[in-house]
Amino acid sequence: MRTASHLLLNTPEIEIWPGGLLRARSNHDARALSRARHVLRRKRDGQYLAADLPEGLLALVPRLRREDGIEAALVLLDHLAEPHRSGIDAIGELPLDRLQDRLHALGLDDGYGERSGLPLVAEPAALTLAGFDRYRRPLWLLSPAARAWRSLHAAALHDGVVLEAISGYRSHDYQLGIFERKLARGQTVQDILTVNAAPGYSEHHSGRALDIGTPDEPPAEESFERTPAFAWLRDNAAAYGFVMSYPRDNPHGIVYEPWHWAWHRA
């Protein structure tokens, strides 16, 4: 049984985070987050929506009740408050709704998956805290992938190799945001698709994949392959269920990514 204090619970529009993990820019929000048992967070932009305090729910945005998906999130929050539901056992996947809208927003048609050879990837209904990444952000993975990452990290450290997580789980909405930010900087959709899969098709959605780096090495650069960390992963990662997803000349049209590894053990 996993306790809710170590889980991110997912709904299509809103995530429910355990308290104590999020940081805010304003003093008002920071005080609320520091006391919160759980925090409701909007997926599309990371906005904090409400803090679940011991004395009740504190809205952090105006018109909280008008937020998309808020009712489903509040039902799940109430579920967590039931004494006999302090642990969460049921794990599933979120529906692949709004996928066409995301693709069409980027000018992509429904044949993208067939052309790229990439499968659709649903978001898990719950993810486990697997530690923190290079930037001290919480790292979320599926529970067995989180255990495998911790074992991999410890084994590397035992051999004198430091591995750093750069990023783990990403929602469909977050992936769309990556495209929107790069488009705003002048990149084309086709250029972005050589580095990032379209929303709904990234392995990061699954909670099985993470980008890995090592200290003093820039993140997500091909130069990672020349580090002792990459050499160690190449020789040892498979023993822990991790596979490099995008080798050179992969059939998906994605550039060589020696930093991107996914857990595939059943």
Rank of each mutant, 00 (worst) to 15 (best):
L96M: 12
Y169C: 07
T128N: 05
A72T: 14
I88F: 00
E225F: 09
A59P: 15
N196A: 11
G113D: 04
K43T: 02
L57A: 04
R37P: 07
G20Q: 05
A73C: 07
P138W: 07
P144E: 06
G19N: 04
G113Q: 10
N196V: 14
R63G: 14
S86T: 15
G117L: 11
L108I: 03
D29H: 13
N27F: 05
D133F: 04
E203C: 13
A238D: 15
H6E: 15
T188K: 02
W232V: 06
A145N: 12
R208A: 14
G131R: 10
A50R: 13
G87T: 15
W263L: 00
R150A: 11
F242D: 04
G69E: 06
L176E: 09
E55N: 14
G87F: 15
R41E: 08
Q47S: 12
G117Q: 13
P124Y: 02
A238S: 12
H205Y: 01
P83I: 02
A73Y: 03
I192E: 08
R102F: 08
V255T: 13
L9W: 00
V39I: 14
D68G: 06
P199M: 08
L33I: 12
R31C: 12
R65G: 10
D133L: 03
L77M: 14
Q187D: 11
